[in-house]
């Protein structure tokens, strides 16, 4: 299979001199299209930095990042925006919904940026909100939703455009187990039916159990990389 994501000796350094911190230390990693992978590791091990660099939200200090063969470290800011818009979906631990848009509008936003037709957008988003259990709450603003409901909107937004790569940073951290399970089912379905590649950063055993590949990060280095869920360890 083709490598959807490829990292070559990626180093990320924050700060200078005495305050310098190496968040990633020469990471080599390849994710094939259609993988359902979990990154785990203790706090400060570099999980979020790894996801940010793969998702082109951050640039590595050294090394190369290739998305479907394209070196993202050489792309301009607007090209990276385009890449994120068309190929990558994000789920953030802090939801990061747009406060002045309703649940429906938040989920619709990416489709609108992609220039999809209004009727297509409506059908897609209403179906997704029904799937994530937010039917009837389309017109609520984020402040009118609980943390779990906001995360469900964030997940709906991330997968609405059926991206080739979904990066999810602790996506179930604020959800009850039932909701988390239904959302994971949804993402697994997207992975199986559409071949979308998923990369999770998580501490949630429920997510770890579903992973088909587990990467363990420790002090910015890959300490373990094995196929199969973390529970098989």
């Amino acid at each position: 299979m083709n490598d959807m994501v490829k990292l070559e000796k990626v180093v990320k350094v924050y700060g200078h001199g005495a305050t310098e911190v190496q968040a990633l230390r020469g990471v080599d990693l390849a994710l094939e299209a259609g993988e359902f992978t979990v990154v785990m590791g203790p706090s400060g091990s570099g999980k979020t930095t790894l996801l940010n660099i793969i998702g082109s939200l951050d640039r590595p200090t050294r090394g190369r990042v290739l998305i479907d063969g394209e070196d993202t470290t050489r792309l301009s800011a607007s090209s990276l925006s385009r890449l994120r818009l068309t190929r990558i979906g994000f789920v953030f631990q802090a939801y990061n919904l747009i406060p002045v848009l309703t649940a429906y509008e938040n989920a619709e936003y990416v489709l609108m940026l992609q220039g999809r037709r209004p009727d297509e957008r409506r059908e897609k988003i209403m179906g997704l909100l029904r799937t994530v259990g937010l039917e009837g709450m389309e017109n609520r603003f984020p402040r009118e939703l609980s943390g779990g409901q906001q995360q469900r909107v964030a997940i709906a937004r991330a997968i609405a455009s059926e991206p080739e790569l979904v990066l999810a940073d602790e996506p179930t951290a604020n959800l009850d187990s039932g909701t988390a399970a239904s959302l994971l089912d949804l993402m697994a379905q997207l992975n199986e039916e559409k071949g979308a590649t998923f990369l999770f950063s998580t501490h949630d055993p429920q997510v770890m159990r579903r992973a088909r590949r587990t990467i363990v990060l420790h002090d910015g280095e890959i300490a373990a990389d094995r196929h199969g869920p973390a529970g098989d360890e």
Binding site: S78, S81, R84, L85, T86, I98, V110, L113, Q114
Partner: peptide, 16 residues
């Protein structure tokens, strides 16, 4: 800034 960062993260161009 968080709102703008989110908009950019999900694909909004700097120009937009």
């Amino acid at each position: 800034t968080r709102e703008f960062a989110t908009l950019m993260a999900i694909g909004t161009s700097p120009l937009r």
